[in-house]
Amino acid sequence: MAEPRASGQDGPVSDQGSLAVETRDLWFSFSGGGPVLRGVDLDAARGQVTVVLGASGSGKTTLLKLLKGLLAPQRGSIRVLGRTTSPGGRGIRLDAAVAYIPQNLGLVRNLTVLENTLTGALGRMGALPALLMAFPPEWIKEATGFLERLGIAHKLEEKVYNLSGGERQRVAIARALMQRPQLLLADEFVSQLDPVTTVSIMDSVRETVVTGLTVIMTTHELDVVARYADHVAVLRDGQKVLDLPAAEVNPRLLSQVIKV
């Protein structure tokens, strides 16, 4: 049996409130397995970078998929940008205001850098122009602008399968930004990159947060927390075991909490 999936959403997206994300007593298990998330409460303030830390299998990816609406919770509630998802309720999967970058980025290898970036705008495009790949010139300009800011505009026409890991990461960010999102969910975002590329990519993300974007990212890189996080939550075996402003945590405490 497939795991439960969300399929719609109750109510419109709202700009009200200081929290972009609120989850309460969130439980989730895949069919035939034990609980992956066990009663998670999480708040993410608007315009901040919240980093969710945890070892492999702690439930980080599942949490992000629930926030995106790709999965539906079995118990508890999720409120994203003012819209609530409850067990058995309708989800938020197709909401372009919430951008989601999966662990392996989910780029289309046979499309170019520009085409991949433009797919971020599909949610506001009609079927026929999309079939003909007839993107309005202003969208192409917007996409090119993002790619310039991310330092990859020189590979605009390059197929994605020819790019390095860091370059692909930049394309995934550009695609997410083309959605004009209010919330960006990024899974294991910089975990496969070298330290120099990590700094460069995270600087770009931090820049976009200045414009009001809320970011929730999962990682197991403790260095990212110190430099870029506003808030930190730690998951262990599906439970939240730490939830503090980034200024109040240090790497020793974090590694202790994650490993214990």
Binding site: R93, L94, V98, P102, G106, V108, T119, L122, G123, Q179
Partner: peptide, 12 residues
């Protein structure tokens, strides 16, 4: 994962 990523931009 590619399908999930593209679908999640809100496309048909």
């Amino acid at each position: 994962e590619v399908l999930e990523a593209v679908r999640s931009v809100g496309c048909s």
